[in-house]
């Protein structure tokens, strides 16, 4: 059974207020995944305070990095269940966990942060991990 909207809406707003687009249906997910060009960050948001309480501010901090993804999208695990299931279907070899964070470049999954690498870290540590990945995968190639 999905969580109460009263409970999850503030957690959703932590991301939508900084520019994330919610993917609420499988069709939303497919439309996002069909865009082949560019870079993207997908956050599997969740209610878990032990981990998600660090994930959301960690993502916020990471997005202050110079190199950052073009598109920001999120699904809410345990709430928007069909959209979450559809998003996970695009990388079925990776065990599902939430919160978790996926980075895409030209629609290819290039980096994944599972729940266990969020739950025992501070927001600053989560941000540092993501910034490093942004620099590695999203930084523009130097002009030749």
């Amino acid at each position: 059974m999905p969580y109460s909207s009263l409970m999850v809406n503030p957690m959703k707003e932590e991301l939508t207020s900084i520019g994330f687009q919610e993917l609420l249906t499988p069709e939303d997910v497919d439309a996002f995944m069909s865009e082949r060009e560019g870079t993207a960050l997908l956050v599997f948001n969740s209610v878990c305070g032990c981990a998600a309480g660090q994930a959301r501010p960690g993502v916020h901090l990471a997005l202050q990095n110079e190199s950052r993804p073009d598109r920001l999208v999120t699904v809410f695990a345990g709430q928007d269940t069909e959209a979450t299931k559809q998003a996970r279907s695009y990388f079925e070899d990776i065990p599902p966990s939430s919160p978790s964070i996926a980075l895409f470049k030209n629609s290819e999954l290039v980096y994944f942060v599972p729940r266990h690498r969020i739950e025992s870290r501070s927001a600053e540590e989560v941000a540092a991990d993501l910034k490093s990945a942004f620099d590695r995968y999203f930084a523009a190639a130097p002009a030749s």
């Binding site: 957690m11 209610v47 878990c48 305070g49 032990c50 998600a52 309480g53 729940r115 266990h116 739950e119």
Partner: peptide, 16 residues
């Protein structure tokens, strides 16, 4: 913001 259960010890909610 989130759900917390501080009375269950340091490892509560952590993948071990």
């Amino acid at each position: 913001m989130g759900t917390f259960h501080q009375d269950k010890g340091d490892l509560h909610g952590i993948t071990v």
